[in-house]
Simulated assay, not measured.
Amino acid sequence: MNKADLIKSIAGKTGNKECICRQMVEAMMETIGEELDKGDEIVLQGFGSFKPWEQTSRTGRNPRTGATCPIEPRTSVKFKAGKGLLQRLNK
């Protein structure tokens, strides 16, 4: 499922127009991005949590040539599924 499919699904389930659902989905994604950018964790009870984490620098390897190369440190995001989501997936 991609973003457009998600918007259509939400519109069908809520009875709202797709343009309204698109605005809601985009606002949610923007808000989550802003909070992660500030270093805050987002917890959606029963669904899961998103948490920024700092990856350290390390040495990588080019699989084609076998040459080693440095990988710069960066910030990434971890997602941990909530209890409700895990129960739904493992019925």
Rank of each mutant, 00 (worst) to 15 (best):
Q45V: 13
M29V: 07
V25Y: 02
E41V: 13
I32G: 10
Q23T: 09
E26W: 01
I32Y: 07
M28C: 15
E34V: 04
R22D: 07
S49G: 10
E41W: 00
F50S: 05
E35N: 13
M29S: 09
M24V: 15
G33V: 04
D40W: 00
F47H: 05
G33C: 09
M29R: 00
M24K: 03
G48Y: 06
S49R: 15
D37Q: 09
D37P: 00
E35F: 02
E26V: 07
V25D: 03
D40S: 12
D37F: 00
D40T: 02
R22Y: 02
K38G: 06
G48E: 02
L36Q: 12
S49K: 15
E41R: 13
E35H: 11
G48W: 03
I32R: 10
F47G: 05
L44W: 07
G48R: 03
M24A: 13
T31I: 08
G33E: 10
G46I: 08
I20F: 08
M29I: 09
E30T: 13
Q23D: 11
E35G: 10
K38C: 04
E41L: 06
M28D: 03
R22M: 03
E26H: 03
T31M: 08
F50Y: 03
E30G: 10
A27S: 14
M29C: 05
V43K: 14
K38V: 01
G33S: 15
I20W: 02
I42M: 07
F50C: 06
M24Q: 05
K38L: 05
C21R: 15
D37G: 12
T31F: 00
E34K: 08
E34H: 04
F50M: 04
V25N: 01
D40A: 09
S49L: 12
E30P: 00
D37C: 03
I42A: 07
R22C: 02
F50P: 02
E41I: 11
G33L: 04
G48T: 05
I20K: 05
C21Y: 12
K38N: 11
T31W: 05
T31N: 11
I42W: 06
D40L: 01
D37V: 06
I20H: 11
G46W: 04
Q23L: 12
G48C: 06
L44S: 08
I32D: 06
D40M: 01
G48H: 06
V43H: 10
M29D: 01
G33T: 14
L36F: 12
F47W: 07
C21W: 11
E41C: 12
G46Q: 13
A27Y: 01
Q45K: 11
I20E: 08
Q23V: 09
V25E: 01
V43I: 14
F47R: 05
